[in-house]
Design a protein around this nucleic acid. Structure first.
Length: 280
DNA sequence: CGCCAGGGTCTCG
DNA sequence: CGAGACCATGGC
């Protein structure tokens, strides 16, 4: 009997929503997942690895969860080494969702030197304090650029942001004023988009790559954080001199191909999940 | 208590 | 360039 989750239209909601690409979805007692897609309330569940939309406009929800991504084709392009195959086996059905660009950018500005659990906590606090109510749920929308631009630094620090408050506020002001236009950035090629994002306060190479991957559908973007650097050193970079981040990305792009971002997220989620388990 | 967390930025050699 | 200091906060 063929595994049902090897189909190209499968999805693993827990892996997708709990892998560190998005930070506000929650699992309900009945096993369904509740979240917001922009300002819209959405509830979804799995049925035999297929996506079932319980709340929200189906076309919009399917687009958010990137159900059009051909996972079979993407997996076929992964390198066949042991580390990658173990990650694939663990993460099969994890999809790179299409997040609203501003929400993604702002969230990852707050992510530096923070654990995933605390990024979620800051996101919740920002939504509660500066977001808007949404009909049918107590979840609140992510604050607009205007809302964060007009907040004081102390108010942002009260949401647990620490030194990141200044950067989030400054970037929100640039976006709110139109000095930075995220929609126009969609027309840029990868390299120019990365450069444009890196000009924003609090955005360096790593955060820019996350925003490209999660918010701009740039599936080749390869964020290198502490976990990925550890994996690369352990499994892909043994004995060799430490390359610069840019050189590392170039070599990784060659190794992992046009969907390198997918491979990266699978390696990240697998390593982090198994490491966490070992601590219990 | 010490260490680490999906880093960015500035300074100094 | 490249390495190091510093930045806040919370979990373990």
């Amino acid at each position: 009997m063929p595994r049902s989750d090897t189909r190209s239209d499968c999805i693993d909601l827990r892996a997708t929503l709990d892998c560190g690409q998005v930070f506000h979805w929650r699992k309900r007692a009945d096993g369904s997942w509740e979240g917001l897609i922009g300002e819209g309330h959405a509830v979804v569940r799995e049925d035999n690895s297929r996506l079932v939309v319980l709340q929200g406009e189906p076309g919009l929800v399917n687009r958010y969860f990137a159900m059009d991504h051909d996972l079979g084709g993407i997996y076929a392009g992964f390198p066949k080494d042991e580390t990658m195959l173990a990650a694939l086996d663990f993460c099969r059905g994890l999809r790179m969702i299409r997040q609203p660009a501003w929400e993604c950018l702002a969230t990852f500005i707050t992510s530096s030197m923070k654990q995933v659990a605390h990024i979620r906590q800051m996101s919740t606090a920002l939504r509660a304090r500066f977001g808007s109510a949404v009909a049918g749920t107590d979840l609140r929308s992510y604050p607009t650029p205007d809302a964060l631009a007009s907040a004081s630094e102390d108010e942002l620090r009260a949401c647990g942001l620490g030194y990141r408050a200044k950067n989030l506020r400054a970037t929100a002001q640039r976006v709110a004023s139109g000095a930075a236009d995220l929609e126009t950035m969609r027309e840029l090629d990868d390299e120019n988009l990365r450069d444009a994002l890196c000009q924003l306060p609090g955005v360096g190479r790593k955060v820019a790559n996350c925003v490209m991957l999660f918010g701009f559908e740039k599936l080749s973007a390869f964020p290198v954080d502490t976990w990925i650097a550890r994996i690369m050193k352990r499994h892909y970079w043994r004995g060799r001199a430490k390359p610069t981040p840019a050189a590392l990305e170039k070599k990784l792009a060659a190794r992992f191909g046009p969907h390198a971002g997918y491979a990266q997220q699978y390696l990240f989620h697998h390593a982090r999940s198994t490491e966490r388990r070992r601590h219990r």
